[in-house]
């Protein structure tokens, strides 16, 4: 288990002052208001990202998804004991799907559509995938408080042999405008 740091900061005293000048025809008003922002770990953030335990060989975790304590990441092949030690990676010219690596929950205030984008060069495609679709053109909607299990779809296409550090962008966007 990762060691979770506690980042819930105390709610600061709200010091707000409002300075209104004039008699109705104000020529300038300057009002100071407080903004308080906390940054959560991914497992307690507005968009909650929680690695799912992916069981591999002998029921041991593959650790293909993990948290470094603050943010989540993926590693294929995983470095857990459940990963097959004989595998060195994905084959070229293939589309792999690894389902149920991550649970994503909407802990905001509005329903959101969930999808991913990838603009790297080393893979032909990299995307989040749910049990029934790649999260791209027809993204699923997460209700407030709702969750979905997602994994990765990786198209190696004509990738070279090697190790690549890629970035997947997870987007949660309010439905409609």
């Amino acid at each position: 288990m990762f060691h979770r740091r506690k980042l819930l900061a105390g709610v600061a005293g709200i010091t707000s002052s409002s300075l209104a000048l004039g008699t109705g025809a104000f020529s300038r008003v300057s009002a100071q208001r407080a903004v308080h922002v906390d940054i959560g770990d991914d497992d307690s953030a507005f968009l909650r990202l929680e690695p799912l335990v992916d069981e591999g060989i002998d029921g041991e975790p593959t650790r293909r998804s993990f948290s470094n304590g603050q943010t989540v990441g993926f590693e294929i092949p995983g470095n857990g004991n459940g990963e097959n030690p004989d595998s060195e990676g994905l084959g070229v010219g293939s589309v792999y799907e690894f389902r149920r690596l991550l649970e994503i929950s909407n802990q905001g205030t509005q329903p959101v559509e969930l999808y991913s984008t990838y603009d790297g060069d080393n893979l032909d495609d990299l995307a989040l995938v749910s049990d029934d679709r790649v999260l791209r053109d027809d993204p699923p909607t997460l209700a407030v408080g709702g969750s979905i299990d997602v994994g990765l779809s990786i198209d190696t296409g004509d990738s070279e042999i090697g190790e690549f550090d890629e970035t997947l962008t997870i987007v949660a966007e309010k439905t409609g405008n």
């Binding site: 980042l7 819930l8 922002v37 906390d38 940054i39 959560g40 770990d41 991914d42 497992d43 307690s44 953030a45 507005f46 968009l47 909650r48 990202l49 929680e50 603050q70 943010t71 929950s105 802990q107 407030v144 408080g145 969750s147 309010k174």
Partner: peptide, 19 residues
């Protein structure tokens, strides 16, 4: 009761817009 987990703040290392 709506939320399954703790809700502590913005996601780290992310780009968030709240309109």
């Amino acid at each position: 009761d709506v939320y399954s987990g703790d809700v502590n703040g913005l996601n780290a290392d992310s780009f968030t817009t709240i309109n």
